[in-house]
């Protein structure tokens, strides 16, 4: 009974929930701090979106829950770390052009390397277990162990410090609100990726076929499209996004460590459960919710920060078991 009430008013409840989420923290946080936290939350949300969107599209199209996504994220961070180490003079140069260049080189290298890794993973491992959720989870979990251990073999087991390009460091002070430059960059990257994904999915033929495949794989095949090629492609794109997320996150948290994927994979799972598996917009909304609440709560009640997202996830599951934006709606 309570459930049907929830279902009927789910839209309104979600709206009220959103308002509460954004406004309630103001009661306990001074306005300028609130704005700084909001920016931090948005930046973190955008980075989570990069990881979660890959998980979400891969699940939507291929019906594969990729537990190895977190390790691809870590690989992206480490490849980026290597590029930064090799081009350290560019990182430390007081020149926006050189800083941007090193960031772009690192980004492209990380995305291509990890996309290739993703293709390998899909072709060699994941392809053998299509249609069997249990084995998919097991096998991608196994792949995670291998990929994380390989990081330890290649880069060593210790944490490494990630240096942010010089002109990306520091902050602007706008009307007493502290605006960190790198956070703004993160928000811009997230928006660009979101816009790009939407453009591809809605405006190109390939994107339309992917969306059709999310709804009905068999029918797309019966219409003459090579679904397996599509799977590999989508897996590679998801992996590349994870790599971008990993690189951006390592600059956000100023470090790389072999197990970093695990933590963010969890965040990604929470995000896609909140947002709805298979929806890019759902991933964005879910990621922003998680990013914002995490930052507000970490300021107000530090020890509860890890739990509050799980709490939100549970509430969403009770109200809308398929998430806020189910695929195909």
């Amino acid at each position: 009974m309570a459930e049907s009430v929830f279902r009927r008013f789910s839209q309104q409840i979600t709206l009220i929930g959103a308002v509460v989420l954004f406004v309630l923290p103001l009661l306990g946080i001074p306005p300028t701090t609130y704005l700084t936290l909001t920016l931090a939350g948005l930046a973190m949300g955008m980075l989570l979106f990069l990881v979660a969107s890959g998980v979400s599209i891969i699940f939507g199209l291929m019906d594969v829950l990729n537990f190895a996504h977190g390790s691809l994220f870590a690989w992206g961070a480490y490849v980026g770390f290597t590029v930064f180490s090799l081009l350290m003079p560019w990182v430390e140069a007081d020149s926006l052009a050189l800083n941007l260049a090193v960031f772009l080189v690192a980004m492209v290298t990380a995305m291509i390397t990890v996309a290739l890794l993703g293709i390998l993973l899909e072709r060699v491992i994941v392809r053998r277990v299509y249609g069997n959720h249990l084995f998919q989870i097991l096998i991608t979990f196994g792949a995670t162990i291998v990929l994380v251990e390989l990081i330890r073999v290649f880069w060593g087991p210790n944490d490494e410090v990630m240096r942010v390009p010089l002109t990306f460091r520091g902050n602007w002070d706008i009307l007493d609100v502290i605006v960190y430059r790198y956070r703004v960059i993160c928000i811009i990257i997230g928006l660009l990726v979101y816009g790009g994904l939407l453009l591809i999915l809605k405006k190109t033929k390939l994107g339309t076929i992917v969306r059709a495949g999310v709804e009905d794989r068999d029918m797309v095949q019966a219409m003459g499209h090579n679904i397996y090629l599509l799977f590999t492609g989508v897996f590679a794109v998801g992996a590349a996004l994870a790599a971008l997320g990993g690189l951006a996150m390592s600059l956000f948290s100023l470090q790389v460590y072999p197990d970093m994927g695990g933590t963010y994979l969890l965040f990604a799972f929470i995000v896609v459960i909140i947002g709805g598996l298979g929806s890019v917009t759902g991933s964005l909304v879910g990621a922003l919710i998680v990013g914002l609440t995490y930052n507000y709560v970490a300021y107000l009640v530090p020890w509860a920060a890890a739990g509050v997202n799980i709490l939100i996830m549970i509430i969403i599951l009770l109200i809308r078991p398929t998430g806020l934006f189910p695929a195909g709606e």
């Binding site: 829950l65 890890a306 996830m313 009770l318 078991p321 398929t322």
Partner: peptide
């Protein structure tokens, strides 16, 4: 909480709760 939704959610949600 989870079986109502989808059995594969079980893996994700238990992982999250275990980390918590």
């Amino acid at each position: 909480l989870t079986l109502r939704v989808k059995a594969i959610f079980f893996a994700m949600i238990t992982l999250a709760i275990a980390e918590l």
